[in-house]
Design a protein around this nucleic acid. Sequence first.
RNA 1: GGAGAGGUGGCCGAGUGGUCGAAGGCGCACGCCUGGAAAGUGUGUAUACACCAAAAGUGUAUCCAGGGUUCGAAUCCCUGUCUCUCCGCCA
Length: 421
Amino acid sequence: MIDIKKLITNAEEMQQNCINRHLDIDIKQVITLYEQQKGLKQELDQLRAKRNEVAQSMKGKMSPEERSVLIEKGKALKEELGEKEEGYKEVKEEYQTQLLQIPNYTAPDSPIGGEEDSTELKRVGEIRKFDFPVKDHLEIGYALDLLDFEAGAKVAGQKFYFLKNEAVLLELALVQYAIKKVMSKGFIPHITPDMARTSVVEGIGFNPRGESTNIYSIENQDLCMIGTSEITLGGKYADTIFKEEELPLKVAGFSHCFRTEAGGAGRESKGLYRVHQFSKVEMFAICKPEDAEGFLEDFLKIEEEICQELNIPYRVLDIASADLGNPAYKKYDIEAWLPGRDKYGEITSTSNCTDYQSRRLNIKYKNKDNETKFVYMLNGTAIAVPRIIISILENFQNEDGSVDLPEVLHPYMGMKKIERK
RNA sequence: GGAGAGGUGGCCGAGUGGUCGAAGGCGCACGCCUGGAAAGUGUGUAUACACCAAAAGUGUAUCCAGGGUUCGAAUCCCUGUCUCUCCGCCA
């Protein structure tokens, strides 16, 4: 959520920002609604003041005649209030819905444009040249008896899957490796609920219901399946005021993530790349405004370190305006080289969301001058399991069908490669 | 799942429908006292929004949430929610 007062002073900048983000939003209209809402509120406040005054004046003893005059006066005010309140409520609701749709500001150094305009900052790691026909992760996974999409579909539907045999160990190994890694970087690890209240999901900036939602919701309950533990970690701190010395707060979450992928059918959707459920370790930080930019770079570094330790060749993208999503002010993605697709594919994403989420979730801190200010919030992927599994299977496949495992995983796997049966 | 009890300020806790933004205590802040500290003592101590150039001040809202009754609700009614206790079920 955006600060309305700031918005009024830089309405044009935000209007351009919406254009850059390919959003059809009329900033002027939102400001008009705000003014209307404010005016109505003032009228209401005056009426209420009168009502309170009348009620106060009736406290003492008085003759029945005097009293009945005042009661009539009160009744009239009550009626007037009731009517005004209705109008105010309508305008206020419209204002609030529109305000919530306004995206965050965009970092001045983020590229402007759509997906194709994201800037490639660097490439790291050698792309392997294969002297045998390359297989994609599905072929490899089925040959090694690691995957079962048919059973997933039978039990839960399209894009659900079973992991089997070494793939199970691999998921557990990746999770444990990632948790230890982020702990070594000072993050407090959490296993979070896989569901969250609708209000929490909204607070983080996801749209829980409606046609284009990517979120599963539970029928007849105020609950959603989370799309990332960012939701539960952020929700944990809703309505909190931190002391300055408690910041920065660095936490990590392990959870299952659920995404409907509505409208995403067919698009890069082969195999494990785009699924309805997956496991993920997520980094999350709450900090003072001045620390946020540094943290974003830190998050990226950790993500790179993980890719490097896993020997996955990757590139880093500075994400362009239209691809940021509403909450992010600036975002870096890491894309792994995936030989089975013969191109890069996104495996991590880290964002500086500034105070966009903390305004909705009401997360603040008290600074040295005892002023209460909104915190800044950041998030970043440590490991999104299925896409790392794809990267490993495809990059480290051998001609005989076996797959070498990255050295850092050997202790967790209890093996160095996945052999053909 | 059944039965009951309860949600009041940073915390504890009082509160007959009007004098309640809310007693009292703790904590916290500042002062006095002291050689210094403790004890004692005095004062202050919520948030949001609006008006105001700003401060001061004023108004409105907030006693879990949402509705309702009433001229007037922390207080009465309904619904939801959360916590606790007991019973049942269960890995």
